[in-house]
């Protein structure tokens, strides 16, 4: 995978080590979070409400001060203000000055990021084009829909041509067409070598664009890595046949509940692993017995499954890992 090759050759864009945040009232929002984001990748941060995702993002961007934090952002210590000139940020539920037009918003935040006026003038038309807001550029923000504000917010996050773009729920309030456009912008940013850090609840969207993800639960980092790696254990082949399970099944084949229900008189056979070659003898023997094979399909956990498993495990630390449980005990 291209992204993987690039990431292994480049240093971390974000390398957080043992980040703690305790709010007044002794609420422990972060309990020693460590996180690595490679330069040039799209990274997704997941977690249920209250997991500490926004707190972590805000610490990186100096909006919140960490109780304790090690590591770097773009090679500089966490909290280093000058580094933010190389970072673009779109917060969740952002409020932009309503008295400004879209063009003025991009210009204003570009200036605050230290971008010279001549450069801003040059960049802004292209950014408006990119987020398809050219026709509304000179209308006041107060007249914008939620989706339009997200687009302008995204444009202001890009005005300083940042090395790292941090987007908190960027598709919030955006219609499906707009979401697709934002996804293509993110992919375009990655192609140009930008690092994109996404914080989103829309797991399916993250799955579509992210090279790597991290899952946070209750202020702790639960898992992080490539989606393929995180779901490797859950990869399996599912074969649905008519009738009862054969008596000769080898030990690596598990019997699960039929997806069509008990009344269907069908049986689900599951083999863990993603090697197609390994299930060929099984299919041959079933066919040899004249069994009807309804379907054969490779299955892996979705990001949503992964997420739900992480949340459940955090709530019930002794629970069996979902992928295997599903294979062993049925759906």
């Amino acid at each position: 995978m291209v992204a993987t090759e690039r990431t292994t050759q480049t240093p971390f864009a974000i390398d957080l080590v043992d980040v703690h945040k305790t709010y007044r009232g002794r609420i422990r929002a972060l309990r020693g979070v460590s996180l690595q984001v490679h330069a040039g990748e799209i990274f997704g941060l997941l977690g249920p409400n209250g997991a500490g995702k926004s707190t972590l993002v805000k610490i990186m961007l100096t909006v919140i001060r960490a109780t304790r934090a090690g590591g770097t952002v773009l090679g500089r210590p966490v909290g280093d203000k000058p580094t933010l000139a190389r970072v673009g940020y779109l917060p969740e539920h952002h409020v932009m000055p309503r008295y400004l037009t879209g063009r003025q918003v991009i210009d204003h935040f570009g200036a605050l990021a230290g971008v010279p006026r001549s450069v801003r003038r040059q960049r802004i038309p292209g950014l408006l084009e990119l987020v398809t807001m050219k026709d509304w550029a000179d209308h006041r923000i107060g007249q914008y829909s939620k989706g339009m504000m997200q687009r302008i917010g995204l444009a202001q996050a890009l005005v300083n041509d940042p090395d790292l773009v941090v987007l908190d729920e960027p598709t919030d309030g955006v219609d499906p067409v707009g979401r697709r456009e934002i996804r293509s912008i993110l992919l375009h940013l990655r192609e140009r070598g930008h690092t994109v850090f996404l914080n989103s609840h829309l797991l399916s969207e993250l799955e579509m664009v992210c090279d790597r993800v991290a899952i946070m639960v209750q202020g702790r980092m639960h898992q992080q890595g490539r989606i393929e790696d995180l779901t490797r254990d859950s990869r399996r082949y599912e074969i649905v046949i008519d009738g009862d399970p054969p008596g000769w099944l080898p030990p690596d084949i598990h019997v699960g509940a039929s997806p069509a229900g008990e009344a269907s008189k069908q049986t689900l056979l599951v083999r863990l692993g993603d090697e197609a070659q390994a299930i060929q003898p099984l299919i041959d023997r079933l066919r040899g017995e004249g069994r009807t094979i309804r379907s054969v399909r490779p299955v892996r956990e979705s990001l949503e499954d992964l997420f739900m498993r992480a949340v459940e495990n955090e709530d019930h630390p002794g629970a069996v890992r979902g992928g295997r449980r599903r294979a062993e005990g049925g759906a």
Partner: peptide, 15 residues
């Protein structure tokens, strides 16, 4: 300093 407004400004390279 309202939530959502201040975040945008504090995330800029200005003390």
């Amino acid at each position: 300093i309202a939530r959502g407004a201040i975040d945008l400004v504090l995330a800029k390279p200005i003390s």
